[in-house]
């Protein structure tokens, strides 16, 4: 068992958790403001692609990082326009963004490099040792920052008001639309960072559909963490540990089906969302609009 619970398992957990932390913090902000964001997956994919493309053209991964965030923020602006301004269904819009998030990178990939599966190799973000890159500590620092913003700042309290009771918030003069736009776009920036982590942090290329459901796991983490930043961090670490364990089990050739370990995060989320284990209290105004018309 010494082989199993090792330093490697810990670093692997951090490695797998970091992109989830970015996306989940974005999802948390969004949901706290009352916008259900199933588009995180699409944001991550767009961010991952733009990060690889940006690094390819500018020849520095830091430019890629900026490009990834910017592209995902653009996608998030589209999402916000549909959800907040047009008052369209948030799930419908999210589904569309996710399809575009798979399609547009795949389409452009073919167009730019003529390769169907993935981009050429690009330079990676610098590492900090143990197989981790500079974005890992950034992800960890992000959590207390989000906690501080949500609970200790005026903006954060207004975000919460917009999410709990948008019409009451609007009636006391809070510009719900503006706060929701800001939160959706911020979630784009963060999920874009998570995407960049995948393409230019962990790997050094974009491959099609490389987010592989992490955007959805991030949503699960937000629910699992009961919409609090530290709870969500715990959930992402748990999910990351499950993935690390799966890899470890395969590497050590243990007689445990890796798919069953892989299924755990989803199964746990299903159980938690029933509210049987502990009360699940989402923002009361999730999905609601600020005004009647």
């Amino acid at each position: 068992m010494d082989d199993f619970f090792s330093f490697d398992l810990l670093t692997a957990t951090l490695r797998f958790s970091a992109p989830l932390i970015f996306a989940a913090m974005g999802g948390l902000l969004c949901e706290r403001a009352g916008v259900m964001n199933i588009a995180l997956e699409g944001f991550m994919l767009v961010g991952a692609f733009a990060a690889a493309a940006g690094t390819y053209y500018a020849e520095t991964p830091f430019a890629g990082l900026v490009a990834g965030m910017a592209a995902a923020m653009l996608a998030a602006t589209i999402h916000a326009f549909w959800c907040v301004t047009l008052r369209g269904d948030q799930i419908v819009a999210g589904t569309a963004i996710n399809l575009l998030g798979v399609g547009i990178p795949a389409f452009l990939l073919q167009r730019i490099w003529g390769t169907p599966g993935g981009s050429p190799q690009v330079e990676r973000l610098p590492g900090i040792g143990a197989g981790l890159n500079v974005l890992v500590p950034v992800a960890l620092v992000l959590v207390p920052i989000v906690h501080y913003v949500v609970y200790q700042t005026r903006a954060g309290l207004r975000i919460q008001a917009a999410g709990e009771h948008p019409r009451a918030a609007a009636s006391v003069g809070i510009d719900v639309v503006r706060y929701r736009y800001a939160c959706v776009i911020a979630s784009g920036a963060l999920a874009g960072l998570g995407g960049a982590y995948l393409s230019i942090g962990d790997l050094s290329q974009y491959t099609n559909n490389m987010a592989a459901g992490r955007g959805f796991i991030a949503i699960a983490a937000v629910i699992f963490g009961n919409w609090t930043p530290f709870g969500t961090l715990g959930a992402t670490l748990l999910f990351g540990a499950a993935q690390a364990t799966r890899v470890q089990v395969q590497a050590l050739g243990l007689n445990v089906a890796p798919d069953l370990i892989g299924a755990l995060p989803y199964l746990l989320t299903l159980i938690v969302i029933t509210g049987l284990v502990r009360r699940s209290d989402p923002p009361a105004g999730l999905g609601k609009h600020a005004t009647a018309e």
Binding site: W82, A96, G103, A106, F107, L109
Partner: peptide, 18 residues
């Protein structure tokens, strides 16, 4: 490239929603 299909699907959904 035929990946435009998914792009079209996404655009159709956005358009229907609008």
């Amino acid at each position: 490239s035929k990946e435009i299909v998914q792009v079209l699907q996404g655009l159709v959904i956005l358009s229907v929603a609008a």
